[in-house]
């Protein structure tokens, strides 16, 4: 009996189990406290859609064998640059979103390529090096945001100061461009159709890729580099491919996130972006070596939903904003769990 139980536990995974239980308990709590369920549900959908692409960005990195991509901020910065360029030239609506994508994707390809070259020289230490490469680029970019020659008054400090603002509103550009596309209501629950469709579209692309020759090669290179070599696969090339894809998805992911959020946050905004994304995919049941689209969907949904429900619940029960603390404990706790229980090696 006990063995069976542990076997079942292994299959579900402790993080998924705990977060799932949290979600159930919180939902019951919310029902008891008569919190507006429709609003919570709408929130869950939006938060799911806006974060899911960033979580999706973890897949190519894990599949290619470089582990959780803690260098995610690199891609995020590419996305932000794209957005800032689109605003600077006063594009609006869908055009501005497409321009932002058009600028950031090539930039992310280049960044990912260089980052991939770097990761190939430090095999086995990708995560810690990636974290600090990410941190240092983010803090280096702070100087760039401060000095970059942008002029659009929407973005630069109104009086006195130099450089771009900390947060830039997207009202005139691509605010909610995906969320509102074909959006409709079921009762009181609003469905952000465009957002979900866009995510589904990216999942589909990734799924097709994983069944292609390169996709298979990348997967093989990630799961067993020596086996891959014996099949004639160029392992280093596949790791670079995975890093490029991950960086591009991060760039697209932050644009999706921002359009839903309505603001860009520059400077230290991207600093900690990688950790919640990593936590979400781990909650979904992924490990440092294995990740699927299913893990992304389950993990993002569980993690974001728990946060959505927790926040008003905490506000009712205790003073102050504890959802931030709650989020921090969950995301770092889950990553710690993955680091210290890895079956691999």
């Amino acid at each position: 009996m006990k063995e069976r139980l542990t076997a079942a536990m292994d299959k579900i995974g402790l993080p998924r189990l705990i977060i799932g239980l949290f979600l159930i308990v919180f939902c019951v709590g919310a029902a008891i406290l008569k919190l507006p369920m429709s609003m919570l549900l709408s929130d869950m959908l939006v938060r799911f859609g806006m974060n899911a692409v960033l979580v999706l960005a973890m897949i190519p990195a894990i599949r290619a064998g470089t582990g959780l991509n803690f260098g995610l901020p690199l891609g995020v910065i590419c996305g932000l640059i794209g957005a800032v360029v689109a605003i600077e030239y006063k594009f609006s609506g869908l055009t501005s979103f497409l321009v932002a994508l058009g600028v950031s994707i090539p930039l992310a390809v280049l960044t990912g390529y260089l980052y991939g070259l770097l990761l190939n020289r430090i095999k086995g230490q990708e995560m810690v090096v990636g974290t600090y490469v990410g941190f240092s680029i983010v803090s280096g970019m702070c100087i760039f945001w401060l000095l970059a020659p942008f002029h659009n008054p929407e973005m630069v400090w109104a009086y006195g100061g130099t450089g771009l603002r900390n947060t830039i509103t997207l009202e005139s550009s691509f605010d909610k461009i995906l969320n509102n596309f074909l959006a409709f209501n079921i009762g009181q629950v609003q469905i952000p159709t465009g957002l979900l469709l866009f995510f589904a579209f990216l999942c589909l692309l990734l799924w097709f890729f994983s069944r292609s020759k390169s996709g298979m090669a990348m997967h093989v290179a990630g799961s067993n580099p020596r086996f891959a070599q014996s099949c004639g696969i160029n392992v280093n090339k596949m790791r670079i491919l995975g890093t490029v894809l991950s960086t591009v998805l991060a760039a697209v992911g932050i644009l999706v996130y921002n359009q839903s959020y309505g603001f860009l946050s520059l400077y230290n905004g991207p600093l900690m972006m990688a950790f919640p994304a990593a936590a979400a995919i781990l909650i979904g049941g992924a490990s440092l070596r294995r990740a699927t689209i299913g893990h992304v969907i389950i993990g993002t949904f569980l993690f974001q939903s728990v946060l959505v429900v927790a926040s008003p619940l905490f506000n009712v029960i205790v003073e102050g904003s504890f959802s931030e603390i709650f989020r921090g404990i969950i995301s770092n706790g889950v990553i710690l769990y993955a680091l210290t229980t890895g079956r691999e090696e």
Partner: peptide
């Protein structure tokens, strides 16, 4: 503020480079 940013950049940057060199040598 630029100096402020610069010293944070230095702190992160020096760690990144040191870790990089170490991992590189090890590999």
């Amino acid at each position: 503020q630029i100096g402020e940013f610069f010293r944070v950049f230095v702190a992160y940057g020096v760690i990144a480079v040191a870790l990089l060199l170490h991992a590189w040598q090890k590999y």
